[in-house]
Amino acid sequence: MSVLANIISLTVIFAVPLLLVALGGMYSEHSGVINLALEGIMVIGALCGCFLLRSFDLSGFGPAHPQLAMFLAVLVAAVSGMIFSLLLAFAAINLKADQTIGGTALNIFAPAFAIVITWAVQGQGQTTIQIPTWIRITQETFGMEKTDGFFATMFFKYQYLTTFIAVVLFIAAWLLMYKTRFGLRLRACGEHPQAADSVGINVYQMRYAGVIISGFLAGIGGLAYVIAVGSGFSSSVGGYGFLALAVMIFGNWKPFNILGSAFIFALFKVIAAYNSSIPFLPKFEGLKDQSSLYQMLPYIVTMIVLVFTSKNSKAPKAEGIPYDKGSR
């Protein structure tokens, strides 16, 4: 049973970055901008968040007020993601640039920048920023006794502030998208920007809003990814930004569907990462390096799923097309 509890709690913690980043992609695409730079934004968010955690650890502020320090790190990750996403917004909205190429540029920039900065701060060859252990939420955080039953493992073995933040942001995303004037206007800009403009909506402003919100979420997602993996940050988020794009497409650009698909993908990721310690999985005794087989799984599943869902996809109609006021 403890294995099951472990799998559940691991799935949740791996689903958090996927959910956050896919929601980010959703905002951006509903406004009409394809955000291929999610991966790069995650890297920048993780870099800034991890550096802040590291400095809190060294200064002693972190161990004294762990959750406050963690909250500040999340905030810094979010803000840095927003600032970095401005680069994409500027190229895609003001300069009407090719959004895929602009996103690719940011994706190449971010890890290289992270390595250069990490070297500069930590010294040559020190490419990993360690994550302090005090950020974890344990039973002691709530003044409870430490136990290790089924529910204790499920709720407290891998519990971090980011999970709660993700829940809040998910509810906020649903409300904002479907219950507010802003959400309706944002979606209009992704479906038919000319029509939106004709009723007085500033399309450029709405698209900026979409991209910046996606930067906010992807920045937090980057930090959440590093926490989920748990072995420190070494200038990479392992293709999670792209996986999140697939989650968003599978989720048909809708918050609740995205939540579901994030959990499915996270489950496959957990199976890939911990296949050797999960008893009921086939072990392929004759085969060497079975873990590679399991690691391919999330990507193969993505492809199969995309084949079946792309036919009736609800992609925003105007995504990827720069808005030109003069064109008809």
């Binding site: 895929t100 697939a246 085969l287 390096d289 590679s292 391919m296 990507y299 995309l306 084949v307 792309s310």
Partner: peptide, 30 residues
Amino acid sequence: FKALFNVNEVITSIMFNWIGMYLVNLLLAN
């Protein structure tokens, strides 16, 4: 995937980058 199912080639290519890498690792290990 693009021609038959209208799946964006960017997503497919990225997924097959990872599949290819793990597949080569798996094949070489065996």
